[in-house]
Every structure is written in C-alpha cells, then in structure tokens.
Design a binder for these strands. Structure first.
Length: 307
DNA sequence: AATGACAACAACCGCCGCTGG
DNA sequence: GCCAGCGGCGGTTGTTGTCAT
C-alpha cells in the first residue's frame, strides 16, 4: 500500500502545497492539452511542476478542466442534489455525474455549507432510525428472510449483498431513478420559464438524456414518459426504495412537485414529506415548516425524515 | 473603521480499490 | 498470491470574502 504521504513519495519530500499560481495552472493546462489526462504522477514530473500527482489531478478536475460551470448552484441543480443525495448519500462523485459541469468537490461543499446547519436536528431523526432498525430486525426475524445482515449499509452495500440478477436490476433502477430526478428538475425549470415552448417530451429532454451517462436501453423511453405525479408508480418506487433505505445512514424521502397537480402552487415549489414531527422545506422560499398530519400519509414510503 | 461570525471555496489528507509486474 | 504505484473518493481543514454589529 502506498505511503500516507501520497504519490511519488520516493522522489520528493518537498512538493509544493497551497494555492496554485497562474503560472502553474498554465503549465498544467498546456501539458494536459498536449498529452491528455491520466498518468498524473508523470504530469507533475514532465510539466515542470513541483506538485504531487494527486494535487495536479485535483487542480485539473476541480478547476482547470474545460466545461466546468462556474458560479452558484441553481435551484434546479439544488433540487437534483437534494434528491440524489437522498438516493445515494454522500456519493458526491456519483451525484456529480448527473450535474454536468459540476464537480464532486463543488457539490460536497455546497451540501456542507447549506445543510450542515440542520445536522443538529437530524440527531432526533437518527434516534428514530435506530428504532426503525430495531423494528425491522425484529420484523426480519419473523419473516425468516434470506436477507443479509448488512442491510443498513449504504446503497452499494445493498447491491453487493444481492445476487447477480437482482443487482443488475437494482443498478438499472438506481440510474433510472436518478434520471427521473434530473429530468424532473429540468422540466420544472422549463415550466418556470414561460418563454420556453419546449414540453416535457420535447427536445430538451433529449438534450438532458444525452448528457447523462449511458444506461440500459430498457429504461430510456420509460425515463422520459414516467410521470412524477403518477401515484401508483410513486408508490412502487418508494415502497421499494423506502423499504430498502429505512435502515440507511443517509437521509431519504420523497418529493412532490405541486406543479404537476392541477397547477397548484408554483413550479419549483416542492416538498419533502416525512413523518409527523419532522420538518419539510419549501425550496422556493426556503421556509422550513413543521410536518403535521398531512405528512402522515406518506410516512409508509420510508419515513422521509428531514431536518 | 474595526472586528467577529459565517459562508463559500480551494486544497490537502487518508483511505480504498484496481492493475500490472 | 504479493506488492507497489496509481487513480479516485470522501472527509476535513485552511483561506478568503461578505455581512452584521
């Protein structure tokens, strides 16, 4: 295993650290443009940079790489981040794949600065989760399942615990769901913009789809036509995923896009639902509202507890 | 104007998995 | 099979900017 000092330890103890200078950026950019990405340790050597390969890679990926979006995370991107985080937890690089031009580091920082504050109150939520964990283990005992004991791991743990067929299906489901999240929020953005005449099945979706990593073909059409407000489909989704994630360490939940229902509310005005006693956030005005009776109806989807 | 709190961002650290010798 | 090197990831820390007092 490589030493704790990082790459190229045998040749350098004195790698430069700290902020990159414009000159260093220029050297790195020129080198990568000429020779391509990869072989980061040799980049450091050959480009005349007194930086570790790790540092070069990070600088390129997070800052210099072409196509990076600069500037604030948009409300649509925020929505996607929230939902994908609910899906995957702190899998920042995975989430970043669904936000073209955004880096995992950017998303991670965004999450920390915007949602760190809510950690405190989430302790209450964790408490309830451990109760859920107990309950489910009890339940499992009753049902005499073949399930593995590590169901409370993060999602990849679930996947690893499955047999081949289940795992394939699950990976497809995850990707499918992530696409839905991305497409839904993009559509919300379009609906928000009255000047846009692109509809939900229009070319915009093709653009979005083409920007996403390739997945199994069997879901491609489905991803576009799937309606977020379709209650039956929702129940299937969240019955399945909510059930899987009940024991997760990560937040989980579901959303409802008010805009899909008889034009109630404004586009982008969507909520997370959870059990009574939790809170929901209104993404339009950032209000945090205590959940009362209304949310009880949704608690069977997995609790959807936030904040 | 000074300063303290907070947010936003950049960069580093440590670990893990993969791969080739 | 073992090991070293590499690439990548997530967590954490450091720095800078902004705003309120």
């Amino acid at each position: 295993m490589v030493s704790a000092m990082g790459w190229g330890i045998q040749e350098h103890q004195g790698w430069r650290k700290g902020p990159w200078t414009p000159e260093e950026d220029k050297l790195l950019t020129e080198y990568v443009n000429l020779n391509g990405e990869g072989r980061w340790s040799s980049v450091a050597r050959c480009a005349g940079l007194n930086r570790s390969g790790k540092s070069c890679r990070l600088r390129w990926v997070n800052y210099l790489r072409p196509g990076l979006k600069r500037g604030q995370i948009t409300p649509q991107e925020e929505g996607i981040i929230i939902e994908l985080h609910a899906l995957w937890g702190n899998k920042w690089s995975t989430i970043a794949r669904y936000l073209p031009g955004r880096t995992d580091n950017e998303i991670k920082n965004f999450w920390r600065t915007h949602f760190k504050k809510k950690e405190k109150s989430s302790r209450k939520q964790q408490k309830r989760r451990s109760q859920l964990l107990k309950d489910q283990k009890l339940q499992k005992g009753h049902n005499n399942h073949h399930d593995h004991d590590d169901h409370h791991d993060q999602l990849p743990g679930h996947v690893a615990a499955m047999d081949g067929a289940d795992q394939t299906k699950t990976n497809q489901d995850i990707d499918h769901q992530a696409r839905d999240v991305t497409i839904k929020h993009e559509n919300m953005a379009l609906t928000n913009n009255p000047s846009s005449d692109q509809n939900i099945n229009g070319s915009h979706n093709q653009i979005i789809q083409s920007s996403l990593p390739p997945v199994n073909v069997m879901y491609q059409d489905d991803a576009v036509s799937y309606s977020w407000s379709d209650t039956t489909a929702d129940q299937e989704y969240y019955g399945l995923w909510g059930g899987l994630w009940n024991l997760d360490d990560q937040p989980y939940g579901r959303t409802n896009n008010n805009n899909n229902n008889n034009n109630q509310g404004t586009a982008g005005n969507y909520y997370y639902y959870g059990a009574a006693g939790d809170h929901i956030i209104n993404h339009s005005n950032k209000n945090i509202i205590p959940i009362q009776n209304q949310a009880r109806a949704f608690s069977s989807y997995g609790g959807g507890a936030f904040f």
